[in-house]
Design a protein around this nucleic acid. Structure first.
Length: 367
DNA sequence: AATTCGGGGTC
DNA sequence: GACCCAGAATT
């Protein structure tokens, strides 16, 4: 182990040893910890990006069963991958996962790359995920730096540098790499993350049973919950969605979301987004509404719409849903996909649209 | 350097 | 409500 600038070797070795011993005694049994296959490890890491283990667990099972090899994932249609990803959020992860599988087939002869730089070059794999896959599957000596590591290190060393800055990222990455056990990078990385997830938790950690409390600077200063420091405050913007549930017999219409926006490449009902909340009368006067039904035809709009408030990290979406029954589908813009309602389950949809459909099916029981 | 991208659990 | 989660890509 070479001498670093931030801590001395002896201390680094001591801390890593404590973490690994704690990990051996407290680690959870998780399926992706029982394999060295980089493909399965990759799947788990992407699924768990900004996602809790409890939320991603079933998706890992689904993906390994539906796509047991890189080749099978690469051969799938993107719609199929997105459908399997439905409900997990951050759908670019699914699109990039699929694109990266194709890259592995075309650029790496179908074999998952074992060089850090090559792993990092894959779509959807950043510094954290490259270090995780590299160390878990190939014992490459790269330290992971995720939310857990930021928290553990900021408390242990009492570092007040904000973690969501370029400076902070570099500082914590350097520190994590000095701490890394070069002989067991995989187990060390697992240990520090699990320690953050189970012991050094964000709120009310039980420091009385912490094996590192003796040397934890934040604990000695009684400032544990003050770390880590963040500066960013994500501001929430409001959006207004007006969905048209256009029905003719057993058929309905869908729109595929394209362009760089939320839920890219997922399906939804025909949508009119407005700058503010509109009444149904106001909505019917908009240019967008008139275009959808520009060919006239016989339509009837049910004024009793369903309103849903959909809360995301950075958005609040107020969605109104209106049922529109028509007698001839020739009256609808051709850009929409006409499907039988029985085939809805084939299409990847957002939780918002899913929640509406749940509500609608409840209503149909009494209709 | 700041913003965008989801959804759910927790207190 | 506010915070956080095995972050990455884009602007």
């Amino acid at each position: 182990m070479k001498t670093g600038d931030l801590i001395i070797d002896r201390e680094a070795f001591f801390i890593s040893h404590i973490l690994i011993r704690w990990y051996d005694q407290n680690k959870r049994d998780l399926p992706w910890r029982e394999t060295k296959d980089p493909y399965f490890i990759w799947l788990s890491e992407v699924i768990l990006q900004q996602t809790r283990v409890a939320q991603g667990y079933d998706y890992y099972t689904r993906f390994t069963e539906s796509f047991p090899t890189v080749a099978s994932l690469a051969e799938a249609h993107e719609d199929e991958v997105l459908k399997l990803w439905q409900g997990l959020g951050y759908y670019s992860r699914a699109r990039n996962l699929h694109a990266a599988a194709k890259m592995i087939v075309s650029d790496f002869d179908g074999v998952f790359p074992s060089i850090y730089k090559d792993i990092l070059s894959l779509k959807g794999i950043g510094e954290y995920t490259a270090a995780a896959i590299g160390s878990f599957a190939f014992e490459l000596p790269h330290a992971v730096v995720d939310g857990n590591v930021f928290r553990v290190l900021s408390r242990l060393f009492g570092i007040a540098t904000p973690i969501d800055t370029t400076q902070g990222k570099k500082l914590f990455t350097d520190l994590a790499n000095e701490l890394l056990d070069q002989k067991h990078p995989g187990e060390h990385n697992q240990a520090i993350m699990e320690f953050g997830a189970l012991q050094c938790v964000p709120v009310s950690p039980n420091c009385s049973i912490c094996p590192l409390s003796d040397i934890c600077l934040a604990y000695s200063q009684n400032k544990v919950t003050a770390y880590p420091v963040k500066q960013g405050k994500t501001k929430v913007k409001e959006r207004y969605f007006n969905y048209l549930d256009i029905r003719i017999g057993s058929f309905m219409f869908l729109n595929k979301r394209t362009g760089n926006d939320i839920w890219k490449n997922l399906y939804e009902l025909p949508l009119i987004e407005t700058e503010e909340k509109l009444t149904l009368d106001q909505l019917q006067e908009t240019e967008a509404f008139l275009q959808i039904f520009e060919k006239g035809g016989n339509i009837s709009i049910h004024p009793m719409g369903i309103t849903l408030k959909h809360v995301l990290s950075h958005r609040i979406i107020y969605a109104n849903f209106y049922t529109v029954t028509i007698t001839e589908d020739a009256a609808i813009q051709e850009r929409f996909l006409k499907i039988d309602q029985a085939d809805l389950f084939n299409f990847a949809i957002s939780r918002l649209v899913d929640r509406y459909l749940e509500r609608r099916s409840e209503g149909d029981l009494f209709a």
